[in-house]
Design a protein around this nucleic acid. Sequence first.
DNA 1: CGTCAACTGGACCGTTCGGTCCAACTACAC
DNA 2: GTGTAGTTGGACCGAACGGTCCAGTTGACG
Lengths: 218, 218
Amino acid sequence: MDRSVQFRSILVRMSAEPRTARGRATRERILDVTTSLIGERGIAGTSLEDVRHAAGVSKSQLYLYFRDRDDLLRAVAHTTCDRVMDAQADVLAEFDSVAGVARYLAGTVALQEQRKARGGCPIGTLAGQLAETDEPARLELVAGMDRWQAGLRAGLEAMRSRGELRADADPGVLAGQVLALIQGGLLLTQIRRDTAAIRDAADGALQLIRASLDDKSL
Amino acid sequence: MDRSVQFRSILVRMSAEPRTARGRATRERILDVTTSLIGERGIAGTSLEDVRHAAGVSKSQLYLYFRDRDDLLRAVAHTTCDRVMDAQADVLAEFDSVAGVARYLAGTVALQEQRKARGGCPIGTLAGQLAETDEPARLELVAGMDRWQAGLRAGLEAMRSRGELRADADPGVLAGQVLALIQGGLLLTQIRRDTAAIRDAADGALQLIRASLDDKSL
DNA sequence: CGTCAACTGGACCGTTCGGTCCAACTACAC
DNA sequence: GTGTAGTTGGACCGAACGGTCCAGTTGACG
């Protein structure tokens, strides 16, 4: 018998990938439910018992697919980033013209109005709960924010290469400012339960981009 | 014996104000230590046993001065807001000229560099942990943010009344945008452990204000 | 249709948590 | 000093938590 193969299988087992469609569905369901639960009640307000119950799953399944609670939390951080990026993928893809930028920002505002100013940005909310305590989770969230900012930047770069944005404008910095405005606006909207903040922040973002437009294209 | 007096004294007792200097010092110490602990490790990472130990205090004292854990948490939210506002009181008071605005923003950036990009904004960090679960705590944080925004707004209004800012500029909106940029910038700085975000956000804030300057005063 | 790995259910455990209770101590008024 | 309200220390409690374990079931495949 090949011992190294056996040993490797144990190592692989640690990250606990399910091997059947059924198992994969179970793992997915756990992750989905946990992400939603944490999005609503926060990490501290979500116990494994809550997860178990909501996912219709037994405890051993949790520990079959996730090493421990922290491992699950990190996966949730990843899933949360995926959800946020997926949800805005199509609008973000059009963030490459003044009209597209305006549409993107309007969409962000509309989403908050629809949510009645609750929840804020799921990534940002998780950040406050995990950034200082769980390094791997922090890195997941950074990756999410970086993808977001990269998406904004790509659109701005497209605008610059078409001459809509001035040549001396810095798409990276501008994207960071837009993202900061959105995050801050969402945070203020969330705690105030009032969408005025995100609306003003969106206006500010548009204004900053407008200020970098090439005068000739005005 | 007057029963109503006795009854009233019980009611007063519920909010548990200490009646001696010694007791007041103890309560203050508990609050101070808890605020610091939570600022470092987050709410979930701070148990009453941690507080008890760090404050050099026994359990019954905790429950003498605070009704329960939530009551302590709300007091911490209040104290956190006070700390943040006190720390920037003098710089914020000068947020009433272009030079003062620049100085204020530079101070915010400098503080993060000094902190090595850790912690973010204490109010914002608490918001992510409490906003959706503890309504009274949320209101404390809103009050803190409102004081902050009011401070920014007061400076901008002073600028407008002196004719530095255009008459059609909205100090309230502008203050909200500056605050959103700061909050978002601090959040990004915190999770990335890189002060570039708050620096870019500060630049953006200055730019937004500059865009509202009266042309004649340029 | 037998076999075995993959998967599931839930009893069980030690720890830690928030919270209660009461006996003892302190300081000040009379 | 003696009384009394204010304050302190810590033993104690039940509940809930994360985590372990194992016996039973399922399902894919030769």
